[in-house]
């Protein structure tokens, strides 16, 4: 049962202000996004159409705490097929960023480790300008597991065989243990400080 007094009529505007969320109100609930989504073959309950409807209703807390937000692959199949140009993949990204800000403000706890992964990834770029796989994995596992030691244990369990496989092919030598850096790292820092919205 939806209680109208629990709804936030401004939620749709909040989403539409976020880059990627602009086309939310174009949705007429045809469900083309959901029918074509490759995830629904694996997670039958996955339903982006429903997330959009709930957003339009103003079910802010239900939407922001919905674990399905964090399994979208951004494969853009929905965006390509949507007859209303809602740009669903970008829209879900906009909602994810609102949820992340809510978490930073202490108002929400996101169960998925994905925001931790994305942030660890961004940190590599802000520091080096390029992706540093080892740095990403070490930071992500440390944050995900709660300590450096636990992180290293979990990482070695998940990636030992994979790492050996790459090592044997010469893809994970000494060179990849160290980060590749752009020369102009000052500009990377500036980009993340001045353009990023959630630092």
């Amino acid at each position: 049962m939806i209680k109208t007094w629990d709804l936030d009529p401004n939620f749709k505007y909040e989403i539409m202000k976020e880059p990627g969320g602009e086309h939310l109100t174009s949705c007429f609930q045809c469900s083309t996004c959901t029918l074509g989504c490759p995830l629904t073959e694996i997670i039958p309950s996955y339903n982006p159409r429903k997330i959009i409807q709930m957003s339009l209703f103003g079910m802010r807390s239900e939407v922001l705490s919905n674990p399905d937000l964090w399994v979208c692959l951004i494969c853009q199949t929905c965006t390509a097929r949507c007859p209303q140009d809602v740009r669903i993949a970008d829209l879900l990204g906009a909602i994810r960023r609102i949820a992340e800000r809510e978490e930073e403000a202490g108002k929400l706890k996101i169960e998925s480790p994905r925001p931790r992964f994305d942030k660890a990834f961004e940190h590599q770029l802000a520091k080096y300008g390029r992706l540093y796989d080892m740095g990403l994995a070490m930071e992500y596992y440390k944050v995900k597991e709660g300590s450096f030691f636990k992180g290293m244990m979990a990482m070695s369990k998940d990636y030992k065989k994979f790492g050996m496989r790459l090592f044997k092919k010469g893809k994970m030598g000494v060179k990849s243990m160290l980060p590749e850096k752009v020369k102009d790292r000052g500009v990377m820092k500036k980009i993340f400080e001045q353009m990023g919205e959630r630092r």
């Binding site: 880059p19 960023r97 994305d118 990834f121 770029l125 992706l131 752009v182 353009m195």
Partner: peptide, 11 residues
Amino acid sequence: NCCGALEVEDP
């Protein structure tokens, strides 16, 4: 520099 891949979510 890196393109941002799929992890940099802010367009």
